[in-house]
Design a protein around this nucleic acid. Structure first.
Lengths: 135, 135
DNA sequence: CTTGACTCCGTAGTTGGGTCCGGGGTTGAC
DNA sequence: GTCAACCCCGGACCCAACTACGGAGTCAAG
């Protein structure tokens, strides 16, 4: 399969394929007599694996590690699990942070409904005050 | 307070202060007769607010917007409120996205405890399978 | 008055993950 | 046999958010 067909099927830019090849995520495919890349059908699944892992928050370095693990034994499974648990915990921590920020922002917005002096904005004042209060 | 003192207190590089100034996040502080920047004490709190917001996933553009809610940006409290509400909703959406990623990853990790063939990794297979499932 | 730490400035480099450019070669349909 | 569509390649460029460089000025201590 040629470059653009693979790119289309996997939903990526053709340049991305060359980029992944440069990075070592994709091994160099065989070439046609004319010099065109000729990808095996399995490449589609590989690319989808990469994209899926990225959606889950893995960096390309981590994806590469995962791919490398794919050929190992039970040790590799443990390593993959550790990687996944790390990403999972990262995400959980990040969600907690964002939730806190969301809640404070929601609180700030709520101050808009408080009575206030004619020319002052309770929301703006509250943001200023909360900036002061940051440890 | 001079550049390095502010940088130390806020836990940033001195170059970062110049960078923020160029970006308009920090207004140009007054200068000493020798031409050195002389920051007001309030800058420490401002920088900490910026850093905290960044840790929570706000881009510097967003931080700038938040800060502009305070001084002179949109004059109307209603506009400020709309901006804050927009950020709040953005945040809620981002949390939902991350939660989805987190849950998928947690599900994947759970597959590690499933019985599996000797030399296969349920996690890696599961990522592959969920990649197949993308349209 | 010298030394060394600090500051100034413009500019360039870094990282991650691509994306685009432009000059050329290859294919396949008409 | 010619044309468009495709592909090749190295290298430049993009974004965000810094971080580093390096030559020159400032300042306080000794």
């Amino acid at each position: 399969m040629r470059t653009s067909e693979l790119a289309d099927r996997a939903g990526v830019n053709t340049e991305t394929l060359r980029y992944y090849e440069r990075r070592g995520l994709l091994t160099e495919p065989p070439r046609t007599p004319g010099g065109y890349r000729d990808y095996p059908a399995a490449s589609v699944g590989l690319l989808r694996f990469i994209k899926r892992a990225q959606e889950l928050g893995f960096t390309l370095d981590e994806v590469e590690e995962l791919l490398h693990l794919d050929n190992g034994g039970p040790d590799s499974c443990d390593a993959a699990r550790a990687l996944a648990e790390h990403r999972r915990d990262d995400l959980a921590a990040r969600i907690r942070d964002l939730q806190r920020m969301h809640d404070s922002l929601a609180d700030l917005v709520a101050t808009c409904d408080l009575p206030r002096a004619d020319r002052s904005c309770a929301l703006l004042e509250a943001i200023t005050d909360s900036a002061e209060g940051i440890r």
